[in-house]
Structure formats: C-alpha cells, structure tokens
Design a protein around this nucleic acid. Sequence first.
DNA 1: ATCCCATGTGTACGAGCGTACATATCGGAG
DNA 2: CTCCGATATGTACGCTCGTACACATGGGAT
Lengths: 182, 182
Amino acid sequence: MPRRYDPDRRQRIIDAAIRVVGQKGLAGLSHRTVAAEADVPLGSTTYHFTTLDDLMVAALRQANEGFAQLVAARGALTDPHTDLAAELAALMGEWLAGDRTGVELEYELYLAALRRPPLRPVAAEWAKDLADLLAPRTDPTTARALVALMDGICLQVLLTDVPYDEGYAREALGRLIPPASP
Amino acid sequence: MPRRYDPDRRQRIIDAAIRVVGQKGLAGLSHRTVAAEADVPLGSTTYHFTTLDDLMVAALRQANEGFAQLVAARGALTDPHTDLAAELAALMGEWLAGDRTGVELEYELYLAALRRPPLRPVAAEWAKDLADLLAPRTDPTTARALVALMDGICLQVLLTDVPYDEGYAREALGRLIPPASP
DNA sequence: ATCCCATGTGTACGAGCGTACATATCGGAG
DNA sequence: CTCCGATATGTACGCTCGTACACATGGGAT
C-alpha cells in the first residue's frame, strides 16, 4: 500500500467530483464514484467529506469561482463606457458556447439547492455576487432583474433545443436597463 | 389477496408520485416509494411505468396542467385592456403564496429535464404554451423574454430566502414590454 | 528523539434500488 | 358461454449505496 502523504488530496477529490457531475449528472455522484474518479480509496472521500452535501458545497463553490473568473476576464463589464446589455449577452454566449459541461454542472448544482438546504447559501451567493457586480452600472433592483433574466434565458437554452440567440438576449437585457439620465 | 379491478390505478399512481416528489424530493422517487404511497404492490408501478422517466413524464405533464388551470382561471391575462405586467406579477404571487410544494415540484421536475432527455419535450412544452398564450398580447419575442424573466424570478425566490416582491416583478416585467404604438 | 493525532486504507454490514418473472385474476370481445 | 390478453401480485437476484470501524502511517509539535 504505497501512496501516503498526499497533501492536495482534498482538492483532487473536489476536482473529481466536478468531473463526475459533469459526465454523469448529479444523480451519478456518490462517495464511490468520486473515489474511483480521483483514484483514491473509498474511505478517503468519506474522511474528507462526511456528507455528500459537503462535497457538493465544495464543488459548487469551486464552480462559482470558475464563473467569476470568466466574468473577471471580461473587464468591459465594469467599464461604464461599454454597452452593458451587449456585454452580458456576449458573456452568456461565451459561457454557453462549446461543450456545455460547465454550464450544466453549474446549473445542476445550483438547482440542487432547491432541496438541499446546505447548498442554498452558496447558490444565493452566486446570484448576489453577480448582482453586486452589475449594480454600479445601473442600480441594485435592475441588477437583480438582469441576473434573473440571464438565469431564465440560460435555462431556456439548456432545457429546450433552441440555440442561443445573442441578439435576442441583448435586446431583452437592454429593455431592462432604464435609460440613462444625462 | 383482495383488491382486484382497479380502473384508475394508473392515475392514482401518478398522484402518488406527485405527492412523493412534493414531500421527499425527486431523489426520493422510486418505484417502491410510489407503490407505498399509492398503496399498491411494487409490481403494479413497474407494470404501468416501466421506467421512472415514464412516471416523471406523466407527473410533469399533470403538474403542467395544474399550472395551466391556474392561468386559465386568470382570464384577465388575455384581456387586452388589462396591465399585462401586473397580471403576470399577480399570477406569480398567487403561485408562490401558501405552501410552495406545487411550485417546488414543478421546478424540480422541470429542471430534471436538464439530465433526462425524455423530460425535455414536456419541459419545453410548458415554456412554449405560456409564451404562446402571451404572444397575442405583445409579440412572440417579448413573450419568450417574459417567460424567461418569470422563470428567473421564481428561481431567485425559491433558491434564496428573499420573499416574493410583486411590485419588483411587475416593474421588471413591465420594462420588457415595448410601449404600445397607438 | 519521541510521540500524538491528523490523515490514509481496507473491509464489512444492512438497506434500498431497478429489474425480471412466474403466477393469478377477470372484463369484455367473440 | 368461452377464452384471451390486459391487468394485478409476490418474490427473488444482483447491484450500489451510505456508513461505520479497526488498523496503519508518518509529519510535525515538543
């Protein structure tokens, strides 16, 4: 029995959990599947994350950070001279492009919060962080509505097979933003 | 072994499934839990619904009909002389009031479609039906956006502990509706 | 240098699951 | 009246799951 002293094991388990959820869905997440994916014994996953909820919280938190990085990379979002609606629509386009593993994972964990109280604060935090980021460009209420509409549009794209229409998103988001008072 | 000839058994199983999901969540749904709730033997649930997906489709379809009735009861939605945004906001208020078992069930099944392809058409149908109903009051694109925003607002209310704010919903929905051209 | 405890490992148990299937029943078609 | 196929029932198999626990190990505090 080799392999001892594995300092980043906890992190590797979280990464494995994210891969598992991305590939097999939240229903396919178990201590065992994660252990297999992370190539660690079963006891190791139960040691670091007593409850599956614990593991989900860690995974959702990490997924949130990934999204936050995507947002941060798009610095134009906070630049008051850009078209906010267009920037948000483009952000969604970028997020929804390519394989949607990341988006699906984010939403699946996000929505799991509906039934799993421990996830609720993390899910709420995601919405709040994005709204807080947007608030300076408009106002807190509008920011909340923008986040809600983005959620709804993403959901429609994920649940129906309608492809993402950036022009439509930009138009709809734009209507939510009250005209500037120069 | 009494109890033979039970004509509405299929329907009773669907009702039981809805109660199970409402009480224990989608994760608590199994052939056995439904059988227990409907007070029928295990073999009966597997006979009428070979796959759990089959059962979920039936349950989601029924939940959709329940929502459709709620909408139909609010005839003012199709009356062009009413304030559409206000009507929609009031509809959401009514739906989210009281115990949220119905809403949670609807969304949980709705969102399960993310990973269960058989559910997708039923979920898409829900969004489409509502959008089709709203389209005559504005235009198809605006109707889609209204549905998306409603989805997003409901989700925010369900996932965070922020109470439903009808005034906010009305204001946001109103902004999506382009001014009438008299 | 010593020792302790956080960390890592292997195994076992009982419960619940989907599924399959042999058998029983009986409404309604003929 | 007869009979057939849709419906109903009970049981069993093999699997995965969460959980618990006894034991091994070695990094770092002392």
